[in-house]
Simulated scan of single mutants.
Amino acid sequence: MKNWLQFKPSGMRFPTALLCAFILSLNIAWAQEEKQFNFSVALNSDQFFGFYPTFQGSYGFSDKAALTFYGIHWGGGTGANWGNWTEFGIGANFQAGDGLSINPQIGFLGGNLLSSGTAGPAIFGDGIVPNLTVNLLKEKVEGQFYFGYYAPLRDEAPTTGTTLSYVHYWLNLGFRASQFFSFGAHYEHLINSGGSNVETSTDVYQWLGPYVQFSKPTGGPFARFSFGTDLVEGNDSFFKLTTGFSF
């Protein structure tokens, strides 16, 4: 049988050239896919939410816009008491220039924290989370603002129970001493903003303190530690540890 992949001094036979062109096009497409797709995972721990892994990803359609998605496994820590609380969401990220990006998203929850104040069954549709993240990353400055409103989608509370809603936001701003090390300040506030039998909103915590972060200069692993005081009367201090990897 004649070998149709045979090379000859005068050049390649047509099928061989076609195969090589196909492989080359696959490599180009793969390289473009890798450039457009970003993904990161993180392990987080603090004294309120406990241990909670997170992930986030994006697929860029242009230099200015990308589809985003994220997930939070709240059930890994304190959330285990909240019906294995789980959050998943999608949105879009827009580059606003000069190191600034704006990422509105909407998340959906499973569990029982919002729909029944942990008194009812764990369900899909426990709540909905419209949220906004604004990131700043420049040569010497970094920062992030997050705001999310956690509202119940269903009412599964017993007669004497209640649904719950929360406002959660934070702001951090830091100085990039190098591509390896940065430091700054972190402020975070969680408010029980109401519910079916909740008459007034209350502060759950209000954290303020410094942070330090270590990152691989070429991208990949990173670690951040935040700590400080809790401004809510009766509370003491806070600590938050995050380590992860960006692909």
Results as ranks from 00 to 15, higher is better:
residue 7 F to H: 07
residue 11 G to H: 05
residue 14 F to Q: 13
residue 17 A to L: 10
residue 19 L to Y: 12
residue 34 E to W: 10
residue 34 E to R: 15
residue 37 F to E: 05
residue 39 F to R: 08
residue 43 L to M: 13
residue 49 F to C: 01
residue 50 G to Y: 03
residue 50 G to F: 02
residue 53 P to H: 05
residue 53 P to W: 02
residue 56 Q to Y: 06
residue 58 S to M: 03
residue 59 Y to R: 08
residue 59 Y to K: 08
residue 68 T to H: 07
residue 69 F to E: 02
residue 73 H to Y: 15
residue 78 T to D: 11
residue 78 T to R: 13
residue 79 G to E: 05
residue 80 A to S: 14
residue 81 N to T: 10
residue 93 N to G: 14
residue 95 Q to T: 12
residue 99 G to P: 10
residue 108 F to E: 04
residue 110 G to M: 05
residue 121 P to E: 02
residue 122 A to S: 15
residue 123 I to N: 03
residue 124 F to S: 11
residue 125 G to S: 07
residue 128 I to A: 09
residue 128 I to T: 09
residue 134 V to M: 12
residue 137 L to F: 10
residue 146 Y to K: 00
residue 146 Y to R: 04
residue 149 Y to M: 04
residue 154 R to W: 02
residue 159 T to S: 15
residue 168 H to R: 04
residue 169 Y to T: 01
residue 176 R to L: 08
residue 181 F to K: 07
residue 182 S to C: 05
residue 182 S to W: 03
residue 184 G to K: 08
residue 185 A to L: 15
residue 186 H to P: 00
residue 190 L to Y: 09
residue 199 E to D: 12
residue 199 E to T: 14
residue 206 Q to E: 12
residue 208 L to F: 15
residue 209 G to Y: 06
residue 211 Y to M: 05
residue 213 Q to Y: 03
residue 225 F to Q: 04
residue 234 G to Y: 11
residue 236 D to L: 08
residue 238 F to I: 03
residue 239 F to N: 11
residue 240 K to S: 12
residue 242 T to F: 06
residue 244 G to W: 06
